[in-house]
Amino acid sequence: MRPIDLAREHGLSAQAIRNYDEAGILPPAERTETGYRRYTPLHAQALRTFLALRGGHGHQPAMEIMRATNSGEIDFAYRLIDAAHVALLAERDTRTKVAAALGTLSTATPPPLRGRPLTVGELARRLGMHPATLRTWETQGILHPERDRATGYREYGPDSVRDAEIARQLRRGGYLLPQVAEFLDSLREAGGADALTTFLDSWQNRLTARSRNLLAGAAQLDVYLTMLDLD
């Protein structure tokens, strides 16, 4: 087969096939007397495998898996695949924790802050806790107060007050400080509790899609490894 023959199956260019060959994604190809590459069904399966792996792992990791496979470093290829599954599991656990934290939030929240920002003492009194706790939350990345330019004192605006109130609820629910910080980071990224629900749904869909893509890549790699064993 010629490069264009491999390319047509996936809507690629012949140059893309040559690039993949030079990158080590395809196994070494024989050449004709005139110097043209000659591809076989093994190369066609290697290309299918790479494209399937790319859907779940990304371009660079998929390329590294194929290079390791083609050079006989199968154990290293397995390690790369295992690492992707470990990372996906960790992300899935994070999403679960964030969703659980959202479910613990009370619907009876204090009225939003109006007027000037609060000092650390004023916010502590509002929440019924010690100012030192708020400073600890700041060092843990839970709160991000502004600083008065003249005095350097902490100033807690509406967003910081909201974050502190959510943090108090989560702490009462038994969440650890790193978990609280993780939840608030997700909340800020999403743009609010309502948006976070949509964000969590989209996040779950991405996780499911990646899981399916990893399975699809593994299936194609299994076929490729079988062909290599028979070659």
Rank of each mutant, 00 (worst) to 15 (best):
G141E: 04
R210L: 02
H85E: 12
Q179Y: 04
L214P: 04
A90S: 04
G192E: 02
A190E: 02
D185S: 15
G157D: 14
A181V: 00
V120C: 10
L89T: 14
P110H: 01
E91N: 13
Q220V: 00
M227D: 05
R149F: 12
D93K: 06
L177D: 15
F199T: 03
Y153F: 07
P111F: 06
A150T: 15
L134A: 02
E165C: 09
L170Q: 06
A101T: 06
L177S: 14
A190D: 03
G115K: 03
R126E: 15
A83Q: 14
L105D: 06
G121F: 01
A100D: 14
E122T: 00
G103W: 08
D163K: 10
Q140V: 13
R95G: 11
A132H: 11
T136W: 14
V161W: 03
S186H: 14
A150R: 14
P117T: 12
I166G: 09
E146R: 09
L105Q: 03
Q140T: 09
L113W: 00
L187S: 07
G141D: 05
T198S: 10
G152H: 01
T133G: 10
L118W: 00
A99H: 12
L170D: 06
L225P: 01
D93W: 04
D222T: 08
E91W: 03
D93S: 01
D201Y: 01
M227Q: 09
Q179L: 01
A132F: 04
L207V: 06
P145Y: 04
V120H: 06
L88P: 05
T139G: 02
P131L: 05
P158T: 00
Q169C: 11
I166W: 08
A108T: 14
A99Y: 05
A167I: 15
S160K: 04
T139E: 05
N213E: 11
Q169P: 06
T136H: 15
H144I: 03
V98H: 08
D148K: 08
E122C: 00
L113T: 03
V120M: 09
E122Y: 00
G103P: 12
R125I: 11
L127M: 11
D93L: 05
K97F: 08
R126D: 14
F183A: 04
Y224V: 10
G121Y: 01
L89C: 10
H130G: 01
P111V: 10
T198P: 05
T96Q: 12
P158W: 02
R212K: 11
G157R: 13
T151F: 07
D222L: 04
R125P: 06
R126N: 11
A108R: 08
N213P: 02
T197R: 15
G121R: 03
Y224L: 15
K97E: 13
L89H: 13
H130M: 08
T136Y: 15
L134N: 05
R95P: 07
S160L: 02
M129Q: 09
L105R: 07
H144L: 06
T104P: 09
